[in-house]
């Protein structure tokens, strides 16, 4: 079990790490573009589309992180009054619900990527195909699903009354 936890952590951190690098690169690219335009009257081609596609990479690859950090919260007013075992059952079903929802999202995103691949749609300036970016989004959604499994595992441990194995809040 420890190994599974470690693996999930690693995957989510790796994914968020790429997201972080992408944030830095987009910042540099935009500043380079402003400087080029203001000082040398030449701009970087396609900053517009690179920024929005960059946001796709940043956002989707980062989605697992807030989930395992426990930041995607709902209202805990009722939940807080529950007994630990009932809480665990609650968490279990919420995780199942989220896994089910995002599994459909994952599958549909792959279908979407397939459709885009066959439609030859490209970005207006750099003529980049959209498909690889849709696959990146799908990967991010996959990581998010993995993060829900983390919650699921934790709920199972909580139900057994064993809180020592999973070191998250």
């Amino acid at each position: 079990m420890k190994a599974a936890e470690k693996g999930i952590r690693k995957l989510i951190n790796f994914s968020a790490g790429i997201s972080g690098i992408c944030i830095f690169l987009i910042m540099l690219m935009t500043v380079w573009d402003i400087a080029g335009r203001r000082l040398f009257n030449s701009s970087v081609a396609g900053v517009y589309e690179l920024s929005s596609l960059g946001l796709v990479v940043i956002s989707f690859l980062a989605m697992g992180l807030p989930q395992i950090e426990g930041e995607n919260v709902g209202v805990t007013m009722i939940y807080d009054r529950l007994k630990p075992k009932v809480k665990a059952v609650f968490d279990f079903f919420i995780s199942i619900l989220c896994i089910a929802l995002f599994s459909v999202v994952f599958r549909q995103t792959l279908t979407f990527a397939g459709r885009m691949a066959s439609s030859n749609q490209i970005t207006p300036v750099l003529h980049l195909p959209l498909t690889p970016f849709i696959y990146t989004a799908a990967f991010g959604i996959f990581v998010l699903i993995v993060a829900f499994f983390w919650d699921l595992i934790k709920a199972v441990y909580d139900f057994k009354g064993d809180n020592t194995n999973v070191g998250i809040k």
Binding site: S119, N120, Q121, I122, T123, P124, H127
Partner: peptide, 9 residues
């Protein structure tokens, strides 16, 4: 049509 560049050449 310009919203989907490349799709309807």
């Amino acid at each position: 049509a310009a919203y989907t560049p490349g799709r309807f050449p």
